[in-house]
């Protein structure tokens, strides 16, 4: 692209006063020697001054705050949807993993592990014990983590 073409693209911005000082001087210097660009710059200047003369719309005082609040609400709603989707997937995975682990233990143990007169790897006792252990551990963890104060945490 030659100088004429590159300067010509800047003419609307030059007329609107949106260029840097150096670019503005370049455009003006070129317009002095180029008849076509000078005429085009004059036309753009008429448009720019006409636009500046129009009444400027005033934005409501709380528009920015309301827009920010709306963005925040939408972002929170998206996060809630994502979390619900994740937790549903994890619940399914939890069931699949627990059944898979039970089948693995049953296969490896030959289907019989006697504890206190009960076959631990038969379905009933296995799921009763595993979910009791999981629930107790999870509850203890939730209590410990939930009670931990954030004030003393080092980042």
């Amino acid at each position: 692209m030659n100088t004429h073409e590159s300067i010509r693209k800047l003419l609307p911005l030059a007329a609107a006063g949106a260029l840097s000082q150096q670019e503005q001087l370049q455009v003006e210097a070129h317009a002095r020697v180029c008849e076509i660009c000078r005429r085009e710059l004059d036309e753009w200047s008429v448009y720019a001054s006409g636009l500046r003369g129009l009444p400027q719309p005033s934005t409501p005082e709380t528009l920015i705050a309301r827009t920010q609040a709306r963005i925040l609400r939408e972002r929170e709603a998206a996060a809630v949807r994502w979390n619900a989707f994740t937790l549903c997937g994890l619940a399914v995975f939890s069931w699949v993993a627990s059944i898979g682990f039970w089948m693995l233990v049953r296969e490896l143990s030959g289907g019989h592990v006697e504890v206190l007169g009960t076959n631990l790897v038969s379905a009933g006792p296995w799921f009763l014990v595993s979910f009791a252990v999981a629930s107790i551990t999870a509850a203890a963890t939730a209590l410990l983590v939930g009670n931990r104060s954030d004030a003393g945490r080092v980042l």
């Binding site: 939890s94 993993a97 627990s98 979910f131 551990t137």
Partner: peptide, 30 residues
């Protein structure tokens, strides 16, 4: 170690919000 992947579910329920960063010095903050 929490059986039946309950530890993973617990993490997703109890995790803290993402850290923010100071616009002046860049330090991490809750």
């Amino acid at each position: 170690f929490i059986p039946n992947a309950i530890g993973i579910i617990l993490y997703f329920i109890l995790r803290d919000p993402l850290l923010q960063h100071c616009t002046k010095c860049g330090a991490a903050a809750q």
